[in-house]
Nucleic acid binder design. Structure first.
Lengths: 193, 193
DNA sequence: CGTAACTCGAACAGTGGTGTTCAACAAGAG
DNA sequence: CTCTTGTTGAACACCACTGTTCGAGTTACG
């Protein structure tokens, strides 16, 4: 092992990371006591591996992004950009739904800009697809790509909120989101799919 | 006056309400000390008029909604629903931009459902316009009205976030929002305005 | 003017978190 | 088996906040 850590230490680190992911996904303000207890570990042990709560949140967030990237990188983005977008939304949506509260935790814990920095890869993927759709004339070019990305982001997180509030069923969300975004991204003068 | 309060007490209540609106609009987690100081008043005085921080936040939020309603009620919602929506967005946007942080404060302070309860009037206005647009065939009917309202809400608050992050200029926001929503609300098969 | 209403700062108790220290104990690695 | 690394709960110091109490001082109001 390149890590000089002992075996049980590695096990505990994994347990803490897992428990933190779960706790923070339920409550963005989850305390270190809560997380340590959920990991079946003493609070001191937690601080032994993560110097501060913020660094733990960072590690959890980085891990979540990695998991997400693994899933997102398998989405086929070739062919009709509209169908590609539908596929990308379908995959992204599951991640957003799962990690919505975690994002909140990161936002209010990590230094400004850090969240966006870690979102660089997934954002680049979306931007690239949107650019291609624009050059093929099926996505609108009268608004900045950064704005379109923001719309996609906010519509998805809005859906997560609606579900949490019990006003939307999980099954319908992906369909609503894609229907909304495909229309929103249609160039003025063109027909909505 | 129907209020049995003394004149200076009334002045202080107004000052506290004003200071709280300003402080909470900057920082949703603003403390009572902060607010009292900004109001030029002792913390004890604040608690003399508002039994708890939560009730103060509630009062501030109610007041903000009232101010908003006053402005929104003057918007002409007759004629082409698309143009009416543009006018409504224009007015709503200023309010959202101003009170975005206040909404966050209310969300994390007030009991679940209270925020939505206080939003009943502005939401009814939007719903009514959307229903009319649907019956005239210019807004889509394949998605629930509640979802369309949520989309409008989230796109506007997303724009507020982009502005706060310095990625969007205040002047362009309203145009982007209306362009996005008009397309998003266009019925499938129809051309985007 | 006199009184009731109001204000003030300081001090207090209570809460709920973060991060550290300590000394005893357990477990992996060689 | 031994030694290093890791783990543990209890206790501690610290911080920032909420909400209350007190007594003294001030202000409106009739």
């Amino acid at each position: 092992m390149t890590t000089g850590k002992r075996a049980d230490a590695q096990r505990n680190i994994a347990a803490i990371l897992g428990a933190a992911t779960e706790c923070l996904s339920r409550d963005p303000a989850a305390s270190t006591s809560e997380i340590a207890k959920a990991a079946g570990v003493g609070r001191v042990t937690l601080y032994g591996h993560f110097p501060s709560r913020a660094e733990l949140v960072d590690a959890v967030f980085v891990h979540a992004i990695e998991v997400g990237e693994e899933s997102l990188s398998q989405v086929d983005l070739t062919g009709d950009p509209r169908e590609a977008l539908a596929r990308l939304v379908e995959s992204s949506w599951h991640l957003v739904d799962r990690y919505a509260a975690l994002l909140v935790a990161a936002q209010e814990t990590l230094p400004s800009g850090r969240v966006r920095e870690l979102h660089a890869d997934p954002m680049a993927r979306v931007e690239k697809l949107l650019e291609r759709g624009r050059s093929e004339g099926v996505f609108r070019s009268d608004l900045p790509v950064s704005w379109l990305v923001s719309v996609m982001h906010n519509v998805m997180h809005g859906a997560a909120g609606e579900i949490q509030a019990g006003r939307l069923s999980s099954g319908k969300a992906a369909g609503y989101i894609t229907a909304t975004l495909l229309a929103a991204f249609t160039p003025p003068g063109e027909r909505v799919a």
